[in-house]
Design a protein around this nucleic acid. Structure first.
Lengths: 101, 101
DNA sequence: GGGATATATAACCATATAGATATATTTCTG
DNA sequence: CAGAAATATATCTATATGGTTATATATCCC
């Protein structure tokens, strides 16, 4: 599963958002997502295959934690489009580009 | 069609990449994508619904041009994850955040 | 050991998606 | 006006996706 496919699903983005704050167990994420436990486990499997989460077993619990590194791929995709955007980061980068010249 | 769904499809990212350089006609994009013409028209329809392209009719031709603005949504999604990344932009932003304090 | 708890997997279903081919529509050109 | 060219739409098909319920597996606790 590639990064783009992994983050296109709104519930998975929600799960990532939750784990951004702190590692979570499956049951916690079930409550947050409002889905059945198997559905959440399925999403987590996809996130794990995309390397967006890492798991630490702890007895019968599993702590799922964010690994944001693959999101760099998305960031790199956006890169060449930033010149068409007008947000803060874009202006920052433009400034940097000007400095580079 | 939301922005994420629009850009998850690799062929659509390829089409966006082509239009990033210059507006293109459908036939040109057919050659670039290596798909049937109806398939490309379908992708373009999706990109148009996502507001990622704009069309300018020109006789029997249609010039499709990039509109990168909706990509800001993706950029905003990435925003809170940047602190977990380690690329150039991230360091830039951290620098900015430090300045803000 | 045995029941409760936490999670994963299997099986199934409905819907969405991406592609193809066939055809319609519009515009150009001789 | 007639045929060619450019694009859009209709229809169909195969596969992927996201959800469910049922069940398996592993661990905790009395």
């Amino acid at each position: 599963m590639d990064t783009f496919s992994a983050i296109v699903e709104p519930k998975r983005r929600l799960l990532l958002e939750a784990m951004r704050r702190q590692p979570c167990t499956v049951n916690t994420l079930v409550e947050i997502a409002g889905l059945s436990q198997p559905a959440v486990s399925k999403h987590l499997k996809i996130l794990k295959e995309a390397n967006l989460v890492v798991v630490r077993p702890d007895g019968q619990k599993r702590w799922y934690a964010l690994n944001a590194q693959p999101l760099e791929e998305v960031d790199h995709f956006l890169e060449p489009y930033r010149q068409f955007l007008s947000n803060k980061l874009d202006r920052l980068e433009q400034h940097l580009n000007e400095m580079d010249q």
